[in-house]
Design a protein around this nucleic acid. Structure first.
Length: 876
RNA sequence: GGAAGCAUAGCUCAGCUGGUUCAGAGCAUCUGCCUUACAAGCAGAGGGUCCGCGGUUCGAACCCGUGUGCUUCCA
């Protein structure tokens, strides 16, 4: 077979993904094995693959593929989230482009368009996950707005309502004037803004001309003011007790109230109170029984209550009213001021606090078992630091606003009769039954029942995800649910710990009576090299699909994972792409080298020379496999990848292959060839979860494989404990080789120039075992043993062995620098020796230190002495 | 305003129960090599007051206190 110069990802990746899928390797059905289950955090159905998805899904794929190799029956469930606000906004936008105004459509017509949009674009992100290599069980693909899922959400709502945990009420909510819907607190992002603090004086209603000055960053809300509030102990305003003042422009007479909520230091110490448009003012209003005047309409324009400004945009009014107040001479001054302003997570417009009738879910009781589950370790968080954050939030949990003024989503199953009585039921028919039972006198008439227009918050459906993907609602006793639930690992971003993770835990206990997953792994947030969060607006988010096209999915996965320290944010650096690409080529070329031996394999070739290399490589493989297993268990995936990378590049390619590499055109022993292929396979296997395509490809080129012999399915072997002696000798051999090469370099020897090497050592057996490797690796024509120095040589000391290097072709040997260096080393060692001796002579140390520490200090002492001796002898 | 986390090489980070596996890895840098798998490579090297200060200890990158700087979450 003709092998290309480098690894070609395009064809290989497509081919292998199709092969795996066709073979049904991604599919899972319950069997006698232990399951390992992950439910994918469903991306928004509107989504396209970005770095966050790439990280999150690569992590999951690594866990799934590794678990599969460890013998688990793995099941990874894909799906999408209907994402009510985001999707509805997209559909509205699409309609606008087609010249259709949402307002002219009925609910059903709109939903028709929405489903059409979903069918057309909704699967894009799932297709993109295939490109990434994700081993997802596609037959299980779920969607949070599917018919069965819908029914489940409705059931849960009715259930909570009947338990008294859902209620309807007017509260101050976060209003998104663009999407025209309520948002939960979690959907609001606070940003620091440069605002203007405007000082406005309100006239006191008295005979004298006197004023009270307030400061505000939102002057447009002045029209909704229904009081001015000052601190009861503020002497400046003590004389105003029982007085009233006049709201300018509105010319409304409002009371001056006293409350110790006021911060005397802020502004003028006098606060304008607008119960309709600020949560704190609202609370004050309740306390002091104030009137509520709503001056801002649902679209962010001023309402009729705003008098002359009715219909104008809130921000336009903010400017205009200040101008008008200035004309009236009521503006005292304006100051620059930075404050926190809430923005809608979905539409990025400024949130308007607004009073509104919404549906709420009481969370306190639901939270209790969920708090305990994490505190008691029934659910593990990685990294553990998120446990605190979780507990803190859960213990201060507030009622959840679950209604949204949208159409795309589960419509709240509540019906109102003509008198406004509420009936919550799964269906209209059931609501009708309730009506008949409740109002028997009217039962004969056909009641006019009107269903609630609002839909439920998207998270009110996705909190059921781990149960509902296994069809909990419709067939609660089904085999899959019993087998796969609770799932094993949830992999998600810390940003949605409250939105989603906490609520899934609550839902799991409340409805299924069981935790939804056993552990949660929080990935970092993907940032750019400068540490900025990747975002569309900054334009610092690389085009993932282009990257996959250019470099291949393996390389993209590599580059994301290599810079994903456990528990920290990911500073994505495109340099990782080159590193990953180079790594693929390294393996590809190693494969070409080994493949090239195939035709030269012969029986009876003497291979004793390389038996050490084989033993050492086996030992390293066993050792590092153990390290990787530990790292993976602790979710140190990045470390795990680095470890495998280094094992392949350094141990296997740089050392092992060079050690066993036959001379040009020399035959290769069948034994060496076989074991080299075998080691290569095991290395590929360790790497496969991280880089599935290139490993599968090379695996298949290394040998002709039987049908079904694919790397993805290969079970990890149990390694016997590596021989410590072999490992130690390997390290020693490397040290000797490096030391000689260093000396060669410093003597400016050309790589082709041969040397003679004479060794004065106590470890003769070790050198005899490795002497052929050593000769080859330092390009020596001869390596021999001696018990005395060699004239005309450079001496090298490695550990306590003395090596003498002779360069036959070098005209003059300048050993001055060499000697100086050795002298320096002696100095250093003597200092070191002193510090060790000080310890050993310290009675307190000898009394308090652990015996093994004392022993190790003694050994250090002896080693240092030996080394100094060797160096001194070497110097002559 | 409340809370948490972080600070180690130019960059990104490891560093367990305090003790030479303790100052380490990768990338970047420098030097020499087109050596018969790979120049997208090979070989070798240099580089750090472990943020400052104080304490505990025979012994501190690690524990405690404090200061400074940064990040995140909540209000």
């Amino acid at each position: 077979m003709e092998l290309s110069k480098n690894f070609q990802h395009q064809q290989a990746e497509n081919q292998w993904y199709n092969h795996w899928e066709k073979k049904g390797y991604f599919k899972s059905t319950p069997d006698e094995r232990e399951p390992y289950t992950i439910v994918m955090p469903p991306p928004n159905v509107t989504g396209i693959l970005h770095m966050g998805h790439a990280l999150n899904n690569t992590v999951q794929d690594i866990l799934i593929r590794r678990a599969k190799m460890m013998g688990y029956n793995t099941c990874w469930v894909p799906g999408t989230d209907h994402a009510s606000i985001a999707t509805e906004a997209k559909v509205v936008g699409m309609l606008r482009e087609r010249g259709i105004d949402k307002k002219t459509l009925s609910r059903d017509e709109f939903l028709g368009y929405a489903w059409e949009w979903k069918e057309k674009y909704g699967g894009i992100i799932l297709e993109q996950l295939r490109k990434l290599g994700c081993a997802l069980d596609w037959d299980r693909t779920a969607f949070t707005l599917d018919e069965d899922y819908y029914a489940s959400v409705i059931r849960v709502f009715v259930d909570l309502y009947n338990k008294g945990l859902i209620f309807r009420g007017v509260k101050m909510i976060n209003w998104d004037p663009k999407a025209k819907t309520a948002l939960s607190d979690e959907e609001v992002n606070h940003k620091q803004m440069n605002s203007k603090l405007t000082y406005v004086k309100y006239r006191i209603d008295s005979d004298k001309e006197e004023y009270i000055t307030i400061a505000t960053v939102r002057p447009e809300t002045i029209l909704g003011d229904t009081a001015v509030c000052v601190h009861p102990e503020d002497e400046r305003y003590a004389h105003l007790k029982g007085k009233y003042c006049i709201i300018p422009i509105a010319n409304r007479r409002v009371p001056i109230i006293f409350d110790d909520y006021i911060d005397k230091e802020f502004g003028t110490g006098a606060l304008k109170v607008t119960p309709a448009h600020d949560i704190n003012d609202y609370n004050l209003g309740i306390k002091h029984n104030l009137e509520v005047i709503d001056t801002i309409a649902e679209d962010g324009t001023m309402s009729d209550a705003a008098g002359p400004y009715a219909g104008m945009d809130r921000f336009a009014v903010r400017k205009k009213i200040v101008e008008d107040l200035k004309e009236l001479g009521l503006v005292v001054k304006e100051e620059d001021y930075t404050n926190q302003v809430g923005f809608s997570e979905r539409t990025d417009v400024v949130i308007e606090p607004r009073l509104s009738m919404q549906w709420w879910c009481k969370m306190g009781d639901l939270a209790k078992p969920a708090i305990d589950a994490v505190a008691d370790g029934d659910i593990d968080f990685h990294p553990a630091k998120f446990k605190n954050l979780y507990r803190h939030w859960m213990e201060n949990i507030k009622d959840w606003c679950v209604s949204r003024q949208l159409w795309w989503g589960q419509r709240i199953p509540a019906w109102y009769d003509a008198e406004g009585t509420i009936y919550v039921a799964k269906t209209a028919a059931e609501a009708h039954e309730q009506y008949k039972a409740k109002k028997p006198a009217l039962a004969a008439e056909k009641p006019e029942m009107r269903q609630e227009e609002d839909v439920l918050d998207t998270w009110f459906s996705s909190w059921l995800w781990p149960m509902e993907v296994f069809d909990w609602n419709k067939t609660p006793d089904n085999k899959d649910l019993a087998y796969y639930y609770p799932t094993n690992t949830l992999v998600t971003a810390p940003e949605i710990i409250f939105f989603w993770v906490a609520r899934m835990i609550m839902a799991g206990y409340e409805f299924k009576g069981q935790l939804p997953f056993k552990e949660v792994y929080f990935t970092g947030i993907v940032r750019d090299k400068q540490g900025r969060k990747m975002s569309k607006s900054l334009g610092n988010s690389p085009d993932l699909l282009k990257m996959i096209d250019d470099y291949g999915a393996d390389v993209v996965r590599f580059s994301v994972m290599i810079c994903s320290p456990a528990g920290n944010d990911v500073l994505f650096d495109e340099a990782g792409l080159d590193q990953g690409r180079n790594f693929c080529n390294k393996m590809w070329n190693a494969m070409k080298l080994v493949k090239g031996w195939e035709a030269r394999v012969a029986d009876g070739v003497e291979d004793s020379q390389v038996s050490f290399a084989l033993d050492w490589m086996d030992a390293r493989l066993a050792e590092v496999s153990g390290e990787v297993a530990e790292l993976m268990k602790d979710f140190k995936l990045s470390e795990g990848l680095k470890t495998v990378y280094s094992l392949i590049w350094n141990d296997f390619c740089s050392w092992y292959l060079e050690w066993v590499k036959p001379a040009m055109d020399a035959p290769v022993s069948a034994h060496v060839y076989e074991r080299t292929i075998s080691v290569f396979e095991q290395l590929l296997q360790l790497l496969h979860p991280f880089m599935p395509f290139v490993t599968e490809e090379i695996y298949h080129i290394l040998r002709t494989r039987a049908e079904g012999d694919d790397l993805i399915n290969k079970q990890l072997p149990a390694y016997s404990a590596p021989t410590a002696e072999t490992l130690k000798q390997g390290t020693m051999l490397q040290e000797v080789i490096s030391a000689v090469r260093d000396t060669r370099n410093k003597s400016q020897l050309k790589p082709k120039e041969e040397i003679e090497l004479w060794i004065d050592t106590q470890h003769r057996a070790f050198y005899e075992r490795t002497i052929d490797i050593l000769r080859k690796q330092v390009n020596a024509m001869q390596v021999g043993f001696t018990t005395e120095g060699k004239h005309g040589s450079l001496s090298i000391v490695v550990n306590t062995d003395k090596l003498y290097m002779i360069m036959p072709n070098a005209t003059a040997v300048d050993s001055g620098a060499q000697k100086e260096e050795m002298q320096k080393e002696i100095e250093y060692l003597k200092g070191f020796l002193l510090s060790v001796e000080k310890k050993l002579n310290n009675e307190k140390f000898m009394a308090n230190a652990k015996p093994e520490v004392v022993a190790s200090e003694r050994k250090k002492h002896q080693d240092a002495l030996n080394k100094i001796k060797a160096l001194e002898e070497s110097l002559g």
